[in-house]
Design a protein around this nucleic acid. Structure first.
Lengths: 263, 263
DNA sequence: GGGTATTTGTCCGTATGTATT
DNA sequence: AAATACATACGGACAAATACC
């Protein structure tokens, strides 16, 4: 009798879900039924169910009931690629190779002043002008990632003028910059973190409003052959439907498609 | 007036935190004071505060009050290293280079039957024998990660008999296996996901019981020069205090320590 | 479309327990 | 021991969403 009632009830229900007695998609007993079963008040039942909603084990639908969550199959992306080519194209290939459909919005292009984050990553003065190119990206029509790339204005001055046009760069921005001003990407570094989503992200990804599902935030800093920082790309993915692969060493002998089943 | 009251109050308080009006460590007004300020019932105040507790913005301490969370500085680990050397030693170096103290328990060594996960990753029969070596790892004395490595029994039969001894392998398991039976690690692949913690992890990392803080789960599959799978290492890190770096391309010119401040 | 029953969502008031100072 | 602050639990009332007739 040490644990509070609502926690005991939550543990009991969680057990029934994990044991499979309640399958994904199945409806839990209604709050009234659970009140009778456990002989507690409705608020106690609701506290118990909240403990299952928070980690996403169940979802409550007003007017219908509470249901065991069905998992969507995670999408797997590879972070290690060829550092000399643009990764967006590689990413699109990866999506299509898995039989899924990729789409993205036209870019939103802005000239902004570098925030401390961006300035630090690009090693430029805080407040210096940068080009920001923002995309919303979808897989099979559902929102999958939000991506913003920041380029120092010096690239534009050196000839990469299409960066400030609000049009997609078909051949990829990395190739374009290489051709337009001879600055070639030689390597990049990713920094992966997880954090709570902000309001924009909650709205775009249709995440629950309480922020219990977090997002991957990947900072990709790209360098040219002289180790100058030429790009910062921030990509945000919902953590509940994504997984990342990092290959180190020789290229894998197994075709990358076999990764889709790995974990 | 569309949003429910508790959400309006939560948004208001969140704004005060994000704007810096309430600094990390600062105490929020007590529930009674907030009842007066917003002219709502105590339960509504509590609902609002729960919305801030769930993403970890504030924490409530019975008998004291509710406080804005202080962030511990995240620890940064590099996932891309030399595929031919063991990474535990590299990891320890990385920790110490940042002026922090590393420690770990003696390993728990077990002979187990391969679960579907492990069998799939090592490409062995489900139920085949594997050596499992489990460590609890600490930084500055606080629990930082849980690590379990699985090795096929064939390695032991080929001479790597210390794998089944419950002692730390000083020189690193990868080096040891290379010397003992000539099977050298040539490359590895990491798969990074985020999920809710299980009970063990909640207890070890001292995470909140409601599972709102998730964990990184990194599967590292290691291959030898013939592309045979020689090891699966699963490492679990709390997502709120870790960040990972992936380097692609030439070695960075900047010393790795500078990463500690990056994001 | 309208009406009704069901189910969850919001909000209130109250009482008592537990942790901390 | 007393005061303070959050935690648990109960009860009730009405609103909003959904399903069904």
């Amino acid at each position: 009798m040490n644990d509070p009632k609502y926690r005991q009830i939550a543990d009991d229900l969680r057990g029934k879900i994990e044991s499979g007695e309640l399958e994904p998609g199945a409806q839990l007993p209604t709050e009234t039924e659970l009140m009778d079963q456990y002989e507690v008040s409705r608020n106690t039942i609701r506290d118990a169910i909240k403990m299952l909603i928070t980690p996403g084990l169940v979802e409550a639908r007003a007017g219908q009931g509470t249901f065991v969550t069905e998992q969507h199959s995670p999408f797997v992306s590879t972070l290690t690629g060829n550092p000399r080519t643009g990764e967006t194209k590689v990413y699109i290939d990866e999506v299509q190779r898995k039989g899924r459909e990729y789409s993205q919005t036209e870019p939103t292009v802005e000239i902004q002043r570098a925030t401390p984050n961006v300035a630090e990553a690009l090693r430029i003065r805080e407040g210096a002008s940068v080009v920001s190119r923002h995309y919303q990206r979808f897989i099979d029509g559902t929102p999958w990632s939000l991506q913003t790339s920041f380029y120092p204005m010096s690239l534009v001055r050196k000839g990469a003028e299409r960066l400030i046009e609000p049009d997609d760069i078909e051949e990829g921005a990395v190739e374009y910059v290489g051709q337009a001003c001879g600055i070639k990407q030689a390597r990049y570094r990713d920094s992966v973190a997880v954090r709570a989503p902000d309001e924009n992200e909650i709205a775009f990804f249709k995440l629950p409003a309480d922020g219990r599902i977090s997002v991957f935030e990947i900072y990709r800093t790209a360098f040219d052959e002289d180790d100058h920082r030429i790009r910062l790309t921030i990509t945000v993915y919902p953590a509940d439907r994504n997984r990342f692969i990092i290959n180190v060493g020789d290229a894998p002998a197994t075709p990358p498609t076999s990764d889709s089943e790995e974990r």
